[in-house]
Simulated scan of single mutants.
Amino acid sequence: MAQVEYKDLLDAGVHFGHLTRKWDPRMAPYIFMEKNGIHIIDLNKTLASIDEAAAAMKGIVRSGRKVMFVATKKQAQEIVTEEARRLKMPFVTDRWLGGMLTNFATIRKSLKKMQGIEKMMKDEATYKSLAKRERLTVYREKEKLERVLGGIADLTRLPAALFIVDVKREHIAVAEAKRLGIPVFAMCDTNSNPSDVDYPIPANDDAYKSIRLITLAIGKAIEEGLLERKQDKDDQRLQEEEEAKRAEDVKTAKAEGETAVDAEEEISPVVAEEAEEQED
């Protein structure tokens, strides 16, 4: 499990919330105190939330399903993109297209279109046969599609869960996931509504260090889930090989037993004949 300590949270500034006048009262259970007009998040609650979210996330990944990372705010884009790519998980860091989950069939058409353009551009003869203006149009369209959909290019079905950095900013993604019954793991600052998500992690969602720490903790849990899934598959493969070997041994033993019986049946008449000759 991802080991995050109290000091790590403190050093990363995870405890700094928003101005008291911007708070959401539903975050009250996660707020420790108010200082200089700013709410301070209870880091003990944050630690407990990270552990709970990491355990649930590991279980989802271990079952072989995908987790989509969503973070379109500037300070979160780089770290989320890096971690999602490292784990080979889908991600959205440019902007959330309305219907990305609820209208996934249309999104898949756009993905196929992007793949078609890439294939055409690789075929130099076809691409160079286009007029200069057409090539420029195709190139710009490819860039636009890659920027928006590049992170989900390999996604063939809906993700099993979402990890979101700022639920207030990504409210459309949260609403779509809620509508489809997809669990949401999210960093919730003091201006957020934690009841909108399944696994809220009370934390500063504006500071780069805070975002990095929480994202890496969730990434570590996903990595552990992937390793456990690989181990499960290896164990299953070994078990199947052992069962196949046992079945082969039984088959061989049975065949050898039948051969021995046949040989005995062949020898018996000869022995009987010799016995009769001795008697005579």
Rank of each mutant, 00 (worst) to 15 (best):
Thr106Leu: 14
Lys128Glu: 15
Thr20Tyr: 10
Asp235Met: 15
Asp166Arg: 08
Val138Ser: 06
Ile38Tyr: 09
Gly181Trp: 04
Lys209Gly: 11
His39Pro: 02
Val270Cys: 04
Ala28Phe: 10
Pro29Asp: 14
Ala54Gln: 12
Arg135Thr: 11
Tyr199Thr: 11
Ile164Thr: 07
Pro90Gln: 04
Asn193Cys: 02
Asp154Gly: 06
Ala28Asn: 12
Arg26His: 13
Thr106Ile: 13
Ala153Met: 05
Gly59Thr: 13
Pro200Glu: 03
Lys132Tyr: 14
Met57Tyr: 04
Gly151Glu: 01
Gln75Glu: 11
Glu83Val: 15
Glu223Lys: 09
Ile50Ser: 07
Ala260Gln: 03
Tyr199Ser: 03
Val165Pro: 02
Lys230Tyr: 10
Ala12Ile: 08
Thr215His: 03
Ala186Ser: 14
Ala263Asp: 08
Leu227Phe: 05
Glu141Gly: 03
Met57Gly: 07
Phe104Trp: 00
Ile60Glu: 12
Ala153Trp: 06
Leu19Ser: 12
Val261Pro: 00
Asp262His: 02
Ala255Phe: 01
Leu155Asp: 06
Ile222Trp: 02
Lys88Tyr: 07
Arg147Lys: 14
Leu216Asn: 15
Ala125Lys: 11
Gly225Arg: 03
Glu52His: 09
Ser129Ala: 13
Cys188Tyr: 00
Thr93Cys: 04
Arg108Thr: 03
Val67Asn: 06
Val80Ala: 14
Ala177Cys: 10
Asn36Gln: 13
Glu228Gln: 10
